[in-house]
Design a binder for these strands. Structure first.
Length: 519
RNA sequence: CGGGGCGUAGCGCAGCCUGGUUAGCGCGCCUGGUUCGGGACUAGGAGGUCGGAGGUUCAAAUCCUCUCGCCCCGACCA
């Protein structure tokens, strides 16, 4: 996170309230829900059981993660959403650096001829490219494509940088925006412009490149599980789902709380395709001229969508503590203004300082919205997904404690000021683990093994979720299944070596595949 | 791009079919009072010219034409 943050997590004195405190509107609850019975439920969010898409959009609006931009398909990532992205970036960036990668930046504009150098690549991306044809008041001699991904420019540069086997491997990553003109945008999941990270590596041997491809897939899996609490299935993509220009594509697939699949990240083994197209060649130790082997891998702001759809509930956003911009909020409560100002607030600030020293700067906020009633203040933090609320009232003041309330379970505990840092850290860790476990259980409960196409269709219509089956079909069979059921091959899980009879073609020795309807 | 909805105050909507007083309602917002440990109540108040353009008419949010945009469902995708 850069300094000079727009976010004002912590405003005690005067000054303008930061975005964290901004107001949002309520929406009258749906008529079908009685006010009395559902009084604990958010009125500005449609229950997910009623309309999942609307629920998703409502959660984003209520938590102020993003808003629609004036250009169709584009979104504004609001301060809270961006802070979340920064936390995600930190987790991945750290892991990339630990594994020897370095960051660099390549340009937004790519000569359109570059795209055309790799046949499958153009075919795959041409339809969704935005092209600049006019600049400086004139038509451009050669149109410039706004990068949909950067294999081509980077290939061009690597060609210049690589001469000898001693120049390899090149392990570069870049954080940037890309543009893919989308027919049907959806906040975070599919926007025309999105933020991501793209790693591009070049190696001397096939083995080394393949190793890199799988290494990055594993890093993705680990960070997604450990930091984002997203249980993922790491696997290989089918022929029909491969990245345009790749020999193999590997993926981290995760299940959303409506049972649909979401591809959370991909790692591609590009073989020598781009090396040949861009002439990334080198003289080997033995003196031969050889083409390099390249990989690319990326995760995007789609991960925010995954977090929302995995953990959130009908009250609003739920964030895994490790990536939550604000991990806990201290809420001083009293009807007596003097007590509030003179006794509770100084104590709250002091506790926040201690917690921040322990959990990291700015990870704990003090709620000073004293013009609101406690219930309203609680609700604000609840909707924004703050993992832990720490209530500090006169009772707690007398008992030298705070009352903690977990966002995901509403579990309440009284924590002594003494050793508060450890207690809070421990609750946050438990919550982090619980979210992952809960999501994993959900996925397991919604995963079924099927033997026949009949059973496949029946299960899918009845319960959705993931379907495991032995599958040996090619592009044609994938297409047929998709047309009949809307489900696609999500991946062939790497941790499943078993072989069986294909449920669709009847062929022997088929690999285990996961099918699902996907985002 | 195909199918379905819809654009009226910050948000959610009614009004439009059967054109005509200062365009309504709920939430939110501002001010006061009572409240105050998971979305309070009350009194008063600010805020829209009805997506845009053109047309019909004495008169249009309401009728006609065109246009822009949004959302949902599909084909395509991180």
């Amino acid at each position: 996170m850069s300094s000079g943050d727009v976010l004002v997590w912590y405003f005690i004195d005067t000054g303008p309230p930061g975005p964290y405190w901004t107001k949002w509107s309520r929406r009258p609850g749906p008529e079908c829900f009685s006010r009395e019975k559902e009084s604990a439920m958010a009125r500005n969010i449609v229950p997910k059981e009623q309309d999942y898409s609307q629920w998703y959009l409502d959660v984003i609006r209520a938590s102020e993660l993003a808003d629609y931009a004036p250009v169709r398909g584009c979104m504004v990532i609001r301060p809270t959403g961006y802070a979340l992205w920064e936390a995600i970036q930190r987790a991945f960036d750290e892991a990339f650096k630990e594994s020897g990668h370095v960051n660099a930046y390549f340009p937004l504009l790519i000569p359109s001829s570059f795209l055309e150098k790799e046949a499958e690549h153009v075919e795959g991306f041409a339809p969704e490219c935005a092209v600049v044809t006019h600049a400086g008041g004139d038509d451009l001699e050669e149109p410039l494509v706004i990068r949909p991904t950067s294999e081509t420019v980077i290939g061009h540069m690597y060609s210049k940088w690589v001469q000898s086997w001693r120049d390899l491997p090149i392990l570069i990553n870049q954080w940037c925006n890309v543009m893919r003109w989308e027919k049907r945008p959806r906040l975070f999941l599919r926007t025309s412009e999105f933020l991501w990270q793209e790693g591009h590596t070049a190696h001397a041997t096939r083995e080394e490149a393949m190793e890199e491809t799988l290494r990055m897939l594993e890093i993705y899996r680990r960070i997604m599980e450990e930091h984002l609490a997203l249980p993922v299935i790491a696997g290989e993509k089918s022929e029909g789902e491969r990245f345009p220009g790749a020999d193999n594509t590997y993926t981290c697939e995760t299940m959303m709380s409506d049972g649909k699949a979401l591809q959370a990240g991909t790692s591609h083994f590009l073989g020598q395709n781009f090396a040949k197209a861009f002439d990334i060649s080198f003289q080997s130790q033995e003196g031969r001229q050889e083409f390099a082997w390249t990989t690319s891998w990326g995760v995007s702001t789609r991960l925010i969508g995954a977090i929302i759809m995995t953990h959130s509930d009908n009250d609003g956003l739920v964030l895994p503590p490790r990536v939550a911009p604000v991990k806990a909020v201290i809420v001083p409560i009293s009807t007596d203004d003097a007590v509030l100002q003179e006794r509770l607030l100084p104590r709250a600030k002091e506790l926040a300082d201690r917690l921040n020293a322990h959990l990291g700067p700015r990870s704990v906020a003090v709620d000073t919205q004293f013009h609101l009633r406690p219930a309203d203040r609680f609700f604000h933090h609840l909707q924004k997904g703050v993992p832990l609320r720490l209530e500090l009232g006169e009772k707690e003041l007398a008992a030298l404690s705070v009352r903690s309330v977990r966002r995901d379970t509403a579990d309440k505990r009284d924590l002594s000021w003494e050793g508060l840092e450890g207690a809070v850290a421990s609750i946050l860790e438990t919550m982090q683990a619980d979210l992952l476990a809960k999501a994993r259980e959900f996925r397991l409960a919604r995963t079924r093994s099927v033997e026949t196409f009949e059973e496949f269709k029946e299960r899918l219509d009845r319960e959705g979720g993931f379907l495991e089956a032995y599958f040996a079909g090619g592009k044609a069979e994938e297409k047929a299944i998709k047309e009949a059921t809307m489900a696609t091959v999500r991946c062939f899980p790497l941790d499943d070596d078993s072989r069986g009879t294909c449920f669709f073609t009847g062929k022997k020795d088929a690999k285990r595949a996961i099918f699902a309807r996907a985002y």
